[in-house]
Simulated assay, not measured.
Amino acid sequence: MQRKKIISKTVIILCCIMLAAFFIFPILLLFINSFKSLKEIYMSVLQLPETMNLDNYVSAFKELDYLNAIKNSLIVTCTVTAANVICCSMAAWVLVRYKTKTSRLIFTIFSVAVLVPFQCVMLPLLAEMGKLNMINMPGLMLVNLGFGSSMSIILFHGFMKNVPVELEEAAAIDGASQPRIFFTIVLPLIKGIAVTVAILNVMSLWNDYLLPSLTINRSGTQTLPLRTYLFFGAYTKKWNLGSAALVMAIIPVIIFYVLCQKHIIKGVTEGAVKG
């Protein structure tokens, strides 16, 4: 019996190592090629670079207009994420506390909306945005907030069910207003899932290319994914500079994810148990 457990555990560990290698290999390959010249990349993408040359990073930094591009990405990502966490947690709180046919219908609509891909509504949405003069950064942030709300509300809704309503009732008896009850009692109790929702939104918004390419694809307002695409033209592709640019683009979100990884696991597991 003990031998079977050891074998089973060993197989699981080996499968996990293989799965990790499967996901890490493309990133490692990208990192290796970011130090190569264009000639070396064309000769072999798997071969190690002859010298660890940082010229690609210097050139990519200048051509990317990196500081301006990362500023635009941070504005969009941070603004939408903060608005998403606050608005969706409040919406989920109301839907959980006020159990009516209308609240159930609204939650059902949000649940169904998750299944609708952006590509299905892309053209009519852009047409309406054009009529409202919203083909700009505020319009991009508003649309991202709308598309990210469904999944966020579902996550908050499952977690919110086990926030003790007695605490809210006691605060209401003491004269606390509804906003004060939410921000001083409810929001601290759902910190785990709030951090999880924030991280998922950050990773999605930071890497988004399609919607920004349709709304803010102009010099000076482009985010990092848009600027990075400039290295891959129709007739020429600067794989060496593109690799360096992609590494610089993913480093901030990797650091953010590593720092908040424990909150993701905690929030998802607690949400699963409490839901």
Score class of each variant (00 low, 15 high):
Val186Phe: 09
Asn217Phe: 09
Asn144His: 15
Tyr209Met: 01
Ile216Thr: 06
His157Tyr: 15
Pro212Gly: 08
Val143His: 08
Leu210Ser: 04
Thr228Val: 15
Ile190Glu: 09
Thr215Asn: 04
Gly192Ile: 06
Gly130Phe: 06
Ile199Val: 13
Leu167Met: 02
Leu142Tyr: 11
Ala176Met: 03
Asn207Val: 10
Lys191Asp: 09
Ala171Gln: 08
Ile216Trp: 03
Ser150Thr: 13
Glu166Phe: 01
Leu132Pro: 00
Phe118Asn: 00
Ala172Thr: 01
Ala172Tyr: 01
Thr215Trp: 03
Arg180Glu: 01
Gly148Cys: 15
Cys120Tyr: 08
Ala194Glu: 07
Ser177Gln: 03
Arg180Ile: 03
Thr221Ile: 12
Leu210Cys: 04
Leu132Trp: 03
Ser219Arg: 02
Ser150Met: 13
Pro225Ser: 13
His157Val: 06
Pro225Gly: 14
Met151Ser: 03
Ile193Trp: 06
Ala170Gln: 14
Asn136Gln: 06
Gly220Phe: 14
Pro124Phe: 00
Pro212Ala: 07
Met137Arg: 15
Leu140Arg: 02
Leu187Cys: 12
Gln222Thr: 08
Ala172Phe: 00
Ala194His: 12
Leu167Ala: 01
Ile173Cys: 04
Pro164Val: 14
Met203Val: 11
Leu167Val: 00
Gly220Ser: 09
Thr196Ser: 15
Thr223Ile: 00
Gln119Glu: 15
Lys131Phe: 07
Pro225Asn: 11
Ile154Gln: 11
Leu155Gln: 02
Met122Lys: 12
Gln222Ser: 14
Met160Glu: 12
Leu189Ala: 08
Gly130Leu: 07
Phe159Ala: 13
Glu168His: 01
Gly158Arg: 10
Ala198Asn: 06
Leu155Glu: 02
Thr184Phe: 10
Ser149Val: 07
Arg218Asp: 12
Val165Cys: 05
Ile154Val: 12
Met137Ser: 07
Thr184Gly: 05
Leu189Gly: 10
Arg218Ala: 07
Val195Lys: 08
Val121Cys: 02
Ile216Glu: 05
Leu167Ser: 00
Leu155Ser: 04
Asn136Glu: 04
Leu187Pro: 08
Gln178Ser: 13
Gly139Glu: 10
Ser150Gly: 11
Glu166Gln: 04
Ile181His: 01
Val165Glu: 06
Met151Phe: 03
Leu155Cys: 03
Glu169Ala: 11
Gly139Phe: 04
Asp208Arg: 09
Ser152Arg: 11
Ser213His: 03
Leu187Asn: 05
Ile216Lys: 02
Gly192Arg: 09
Asn207Cys: 11
Leu167Trp: 01
Met151Trp: 06
Val143Cys: 08
His157Gln: 11
Met160Trp: 13
Ile199Cys: 05
Ile185Pro: 00
Val186Lys: 07
Val165Ala: 15
Met203Ile: 12
Met151Cys: 01
Gly148Thr: 13
Ala198Gly: 09
Leu224Tyr: 06
Met160Phe: 15
Thr184Trp: 08
Ala171Phe: 11
Pro212Gln: 04
